[in-house]
Design a protein around this nucleic acid. Structure first.
Length: 557
RNA sequence: GUACCCGUAGCUCAGCUGGAUAGAGCGUUGGCUUGCGGAGCCAAAGGUCGUAGGUUCGAAUCCUGUCGGGUACACCA
């Protein structure tokens, strides 16, 4: 609808003024009309005269009911009811009213997010990126892409040495058989606790520090020799698997799409190291104090270590290996990585290194970064587990808050609350998460949208829904106008990879419906058939929108 | 110190390809139920868009300075 109108205006402007000005159509307040454009003001002097000429032609278009000039030279356009109304049947026929603009049709896109580390706790940030990544993947699929979901995590590195050290302490030596004593449901938790214990020892105890460093080397060595037999290796592989089991369990409970592939760091290290060594010969990297570094200063960046003076690869090298591995595996058109914004500068250095080997990867990469997740009111964190906010802290706080408003699908409501609370905010800044607000049915929340859906469904479930085509009345028109915005909203969300645009829209849509609902009866009214059709379209759009966000749309609550 | 990000209503946030009277939720105050789910709706009060300049017919939006907050800057990830 929008595109058609835009191209028609473009043609008019070209005929009248010979200008190839880009036509930007916006949605003004409803009192001004359905669309608004400022082209007349872009055409130089006398915007009013320009506008008048354009309006004259605009009025002759079939879709346009009214066109007026307003303010400093805006052209406000009101569509005919017939045109506007066509979205109802479009929505109902397609059942997937996401618009037809498949900008990624046939493209392969690799989306990397979540990225939890085995042998470590899941932080609130992991929760955030998991949920956001899932929605971004949905958006890309909507736009026609073949999306591959991948997950990167550190199964080697100092944190692993730290946890392994504490595990061995806990087991009283390298006794893998003792792991059997730990109950299945406690495994993930237990490993996380060992990490915290090890970290404390590393920070406060020189002897432990040396032992941890030594164990760290043994973990790398175990991969080099493909050791699955030694007691040490058995402990390692068992606990690593426990971590992955725990991650998958979390993803299941969050009802997000499963990952296509895990890339453990141990599997990207070799290629990373080879690449760094080749780069060292070519002068991309240099030796400095026994370490291999990339000096980024000439590019406005900073120096980072790729191989330590102990000869161990750092995260930088593994990330380099990861990028190359993803490229080998998928030959993607686009690679998206979602991480915290504390590593933007770091990532630039890795990209700088990458540029010397596979520049096309850099050209096709997009790094999306988000802020920190905090609990509103500075609610205390699980200090015994370290000083970071954990994924479980967030989920537990939401569950606790939701108990005040219990209903049928408690878990579904909690998920809706958390997901929506995260997603409604533009990606990038810090997020202050307020559990109470998120589960509240009042206000801009996931449960509000679910309720808005259930409420409308309760009407539809009482009557069979015909599909009719009456003339719209004033309040019906308001609702149809909002429904008609869906394709352009989804398009914008896809183009900019901003899920919050969908949230904002759905909230406005639900408000529009609730407002309509309050003022108009449906069942038993002369306009019953028309209104049932309209509500059916509304419910379809709301449900599809929520699905895009990974949020369920229950018929009852 | 250098670089990047962020400063919009009491609080949490939209708005940022420059455009009409800067919007929403929460909170506050006041209304609406012989009604399809009132877990709703309607309304009011509340803002020098951190600040000072610049560009422009027009700036919350672009540019520069400045203040405040956050993050990153060599062997952690």
């Amino acid at each position: 609808m929008k595109e058609v109108l835009a191209s028609e205006i473009k043609q008019i402007v070209q005929e009248l003024f010979g200008s190839k000005a880009k036509i930007v159509l916006t949605r003004p307040e409803s009192k001004f009309g359905d669309f608004s454009t400022n082209v007349a003001m872009q055409l130089g002097r006398a915007p009013a005269e320009n506008a008048a000429k354009i309006i004259e032609k605009l009025k002759r278009l079939d879709e346009v009911a009214e066109a007026t000039i307003a303010g400093p030279g805006f052209i406000n356009i009101t569509l005919t009811d017939a045109t506007l109304q066509s979205v109802i049947s479009e929505v109902l026929d397609k059942k997937e009213a996401y618009g037809s603009n498949k900008i990624y049709d046939g493209k392969t896109i690799v989306a990397e997010y979540s990225d939890p580390n085995p042998f470590k706790v899941l932080h609130a940030g992991h929760l955030y990126t998991t949920l956001t990544g899932d929605v971004i993947a949905n958006l890309l699929e909507t736009a026609g892409a073949n999306v591959k979901l991948v997950n990167f995590g550190g199964d080697v590195g100092l944190h692993v040495g730290t946890t392994m050290w504490a595990i061995i302490q806990e087991l009283g030596g390298e006794h893998p058989e003792k792991l059997a004593d730990i109950k299945t449901e406690n495994r993930m938790q237990w490993v996380s606790e060992q990490y915290v214990k090890g970290t404390k020892a590393f920070e406060g105890n020189e002897a432990a520090k040396d032992e941890i460093r030594d164990i760290n080397k043994r973990v790398y060595a175990l991969h080099d020799t493909n050791d699955h037999e030694s007691p040490f290796a058995q402990i390692y592989w068992t606990c690593r698997q426990w971590s992955y089991d725990g991650f998958n369990e979390l993803y299941r409970s969050l009802r997000v799409a499963p990952f296509d592939k895990y890339y453990p760091e141990s599997e990207t290290t070799e290629l990373g190291v080879e690449t760094v060594q080749e780069g060292l010969k070519r002068g991309v990297f240099e030796n400095s104090d026994g370490a291999v570094v990339l000096k980024g200063e000439s590019a406005g960046l900073h120096t980072r270590v790729f191989i330590t003076s102990e000869g161990l690869p750092t995260y930088e090298t593994k990330d380099l290996g990861l990028a190359l591995t993803k490229w080998q595996d998928y030959r993607f058109d686009l690679s998206i990585m979602i991480t915290g914004n504390d590593i933007v500068e770091y990532m630039k250095v890795v990209q700088l290194a990458l540029k010397s080997f596979q520049p096309e990867i850099c050209e096709r990469s997009k790094h999306i970064t988000h802020g920190m997740l905090k609990l509103a009111g500075g609610i205390k964190m699980s200090s015994r587990k370290g000083n970071a906010l954990l994924a479980s802290d967030v989920l537990e706080s939401a569950e606790k808050a939701s108990k005040a408003h219990s209903n049928n699908d408690q878990q579904g409501t909690v998920l809706a609350a958390v997901k929506y609370a995260f997603l409604k905010q533009r990606i990038g800044g810090d997020i202050i998460y307020d559990p109470e607000e998120s589960v509240s049915i009042a206000g801009n929340s996931g449960p509000y949208l679910q309720y808005a859906h259930a409420r409308a469904m309760s009407i539809l479930l009482k009557k069979p829904t015909p599909q009719v085509d009456y003339k719209l009345d004033v309040s019906e028109r308001q609702l149809v106008r909002k429904i008609s915005e869906l394709p352009e909203v989804v398009e914008a969300a896809v183009n900019e990879l901003m899920p919050h645009l969908v949230c904002t829209y759905l909230y406005e849509l639900a408000q529009e419906f609730n407002s309509f609902y309050e003022a108009n009866r449906v069942i038993g009214e002369p306009r019953e058939d028309m209104r049932l059709t309209l509500i059916n379209a509304y419910v379809t759009v709301l449900k599809n929108g929520l699905k895009l966000l990974g949020i369920s749309a229950p018929d009852h609550m």
